[in-house]
Design a protein around this nucleic acid. Structure first.
Length: 360
DNA sequence: GAACATGATTCCCA
DNA sequence: TGGGAATCATGTTC
């Protein structure tokens, strides 16, 4: 047998070896990192058969987390899907490119080796080693592609799932309702759970959003009373007007004890809101601890003061400041009637509790 | 695009 | 556990 034919035979065996290598490679225990990436891409619907599964599930979760109107959700949903589809397309295009490049390069190297085999003996081991090197290189590139795709999906997810990113300003009406409550209860702007629920319902937001709003409002009001002065006056005046017209109506109807809480959703009649909450408690059979009534009176006094100052006209800004800014906050920077945590958590506590906001 | 407004989150405390 | 304070991230205004 001539040398050339011997080389050809070896080459055949080498090629057969390469094929067996590829087969063996498939049976190798997969890299756990690669497995994780594959699983995630599959779960997200990026790799594998195209289906709504992962994508729609995440979009639905995002929509649920974000809340808001159905329209918003559907827009976000389609937006999410569109972006995920984009990622999927890029991923598959790149993957195909890499696979093609890998095959082309392997073929090229094999051809080179074939060429060389005419001039020097090439062992199957050498071919196997070369092919292994090529495959390792390409699989590391593939891993990078999968990793960056996963990162892209994670970023996309976080954009849709992170509520902070989805912050939307409350509508004007909701803000008005909250502000009216806040300024009409300036001496003790701590709505109870019932009040929060009531406000949440009226504002079409969640109770925790109401809590957030009051938390932010208290802090920001306290930090910069001057800035909120005008706003405080405006809402106080509005409350006073409401109170005045209501009392006029009340005297006309000769039934002062009928709160007009039926104010449309567009107008949360705060001059009566306290009465409303009082009524709720009253219906529950609870008695009013003295401080609760006191807080209510305080609120009414706030309003009356403003009515008087309005009637007399503001002679100076200081008068208004004295009426509204220090009010509620004592020298220590604490709300006069600020509830202690315990009083907040137990609305039915006896005297000494300042839970009263809602009861006023 | 900077400055400001504002809703949400986090950490800490009582 | 609720609230204060600080901070983040986004929306709005100019």
């Amino acid at each position: 047998m001539c040398v050339a034919s011997r080389y050809v035979g070896e080459e055949k065996r080498a090629l057969a070896g390469v094929l067996s290598i590829r087969g063996a490679q498939d049976e190798e225990p997969p890299d756990p990192q690669l497995m994780r990436l594959d699983n995630m891409l599959l779960a997200e619907g990026v790799s594998g058969p195209e289906k709504g599964g992962g994508a729609s599930a995440v979009a639905a979760a995002a929509a649920a987390a974000v809340g808001g109107t159905g329209n918003d959700n559907s827009v976000e949903h389609s937006d999410y899907r569109a972006k995920l589809t984009q990622i999927r397309q890029i991923y598959h295009t790149e993957l195909e490119k890499y696979e093609q490049a890998c095959n082309e390069f392997t073929t090229h190297v094999m051809n080179l080796l074939r060429e060389q085999s005419r001039t020097r003996p090439i062992s199957p081991k050498e071919i196997e080693r070369m092919v292994n090197i090529i495959h390792r290189k390409f699989s590391s590139i593939q891993m990078q592609l999968k990793q960056s795709t996963c990162e892209a999906v994670m970023i996309l997810r976080s954009r849709f799932l992170d509520a902070r990113r989805k912050r939307r300003n409350f509508n004007k009406q909701a803000t008005e309702i909250l502000n009216e409550y806040f300024y009409s209860h300036l001496s003790n702007p701590y709505p109870s759970e019932e009040a929060k629920e009531e406000l949440a319902k009226k504002c079409s937001i969640t109770v925790s959003q109401v809590s957030n709003w009051f938390g932010n409002k208290r802090i920001r009001y306290k930090k910069n009373i001057g800035k909120f002065q005008e706003e405080a006056n405006m809402y106080a005046a509005r409350t006073a007007v409401n109170a005045a017209s209501a009392s006029a109506q009340g005297s006309q109807a000769n039934s002062p004890s009928t709160p007009n809480s039926a104010g449309s959703a567009a107008s949360f009649n705060m001059s009566h809101s306290g009465d409303l909450f009082m009524s709720v408690q009253s219906l529950n059979g609870d008695s009013y601890p003295a401080p609760q009534v006191g807080a209510n009176i305080q609120s009414q006094v706030d309003t009356l003061r403003h009515v008087i100052s309005q009637a007399g006209g503001y002679t100076d800004a200081l008068a208004a400041t004295q009426l509204y800014s220090p009010q509620g906050i004592n020298a220590n920077g604490v709300w006069q009637d600020a509830p202690t945590p315990s009083s907040v958590t137990s609305p039915t506590e006896g005297p000494g509790s300042v839970q009263s906001d809602t009861s006023n």
